[in-house]
Simulated scan of single mutants.
Amino acid sequence: MGDYFSIRGNEYHVPFADRCLDNKAYRSYFIHKTYQSAACIQQQGTPIEHFGIVTKGILKAVNDTVNGMELCHTYFQVKDIFPEFLYFSGRQHYTYDLYAVKKSEVVWVPVNVMEEMLAADPQLMYSLILYISHRGLKNQLFLNCLNYHTIRERIAFWITGMHNITIGETITLPSSQSILANMLHVSRSSLNKELKLMERDAFFTITEREIHDLDINRLSELL
């Protein structure tokens, strides 16, 4: 998510996770837990009694298909919250299994405490609305990528979409390239190869996890 985000002009807002975790009045209610890689954090059907805020690592929400294959719905990275979509749509139980992809840390906030915090702080509520909107846009972006057949087209669509919903000229890659590969529904090796080819062809430059020097016009021409 980055440290700050904006929805209009140059107006910046503190991300929901930061504003929530910095709330000294309610900090005593927060529960900090660490999970090892591959640990099951929540099982499908578990009652939703807390909001989770990822402070380190990566989590994934999965279900098993009728063929016994794992279907990954989404990932939660640092500063992501969950299960916001389930809770605010009226669900009372998890509809997926939640696992730690690697060693991760989560701050748990009881739902009644979160509701009280939101009622008492309009800026926190506003930050939550911005977070949910931003996450929804990113999820829709990954879904729409599947309309394109080639890996290059999917990468181009994702980059141009992220360019439109993030601040500045730099796009941050997910903390694991496997995450981006899974969300684009391509193999990790194919994604890595195509990213290198597109960088060679001067569509962008990649430095560690940052994509910059974007040629948005050329990327758009691929779509």
Rank of each mutant, 00 (worst) to 15 (best):
Y35N: 02
R19N: 01
F16W: 03
D213R: 10
T95M: 10
E115Y: 01
S37L: 09
I179Y: 11
A202I: 11
H93F: 12
F88R: 00
D3K: 10
T170H: 09
T205H: 12
F82T: 03
Y26T: 01
N192Q: 14
M1L: 09
Q177H: 11
E116M: 05
M183H: 13
A17P: 01
I211R: 03
V109T: 02
H93T: 14
V111H: 03
I7N: 06
V62N: 11
F30G: 00
I165V: 14
E153G: 13
F82R: 03
C145T: 14
G9I: 04
R152H: 11
C145H: 11
L195S: 05
P83F: 10
L223M: 15
S6H: 08
N23V: 01
A120V: 00
S28A: 09
G90S: 08
Q92D: 04
A39D: 15
R188F: 14
Y26S: 05
V66Y: 12
V54K: 00
Y26W: 07
P47C: 08
L130R: 09
A39H: 13
L128P: 01
E194W: 11
P47G: 09
F204W: 03
S89V: 05
K103E: 13
H50F: 14
F51D: 01
A100M: 07
E84M: 03
H149G: 10
G45E: 02
V54F: 03
I129T: 08
N182D: 15
R8N: 13
T207A: 10
A61R: 04
Q177K: 14
Q140A: 12
F30I: 00
C20R: 01
N67M: 12
E153W: 12
R218Q: 12
S220W: 07
S176Q: 15
T150Q: 09
I165A: 06
C20N: 01
K79G: 02
S175M: 10
R188M: 14
Y26Q: 00
N217W: 06
Y126E: 11
Y75R: 07
R200K: 15
L21I: 02
I53Q: 03
G90P: 08
G161N: 10
H149D: 14
I81N: 03
T160R: 03
L184S: 11
N182C: 14
V101Y: 14
Q177W: 05
F16P: 02
S133D: 05
E70L: 12
Y131V: 01
F157G: 07
E153M: 13
H212G: 08
E169H: 11
L222Q: 10
R218E: 10
K33P: 00
H32A: 08
L214K: 05
L214Y: 08
A120Q: 07
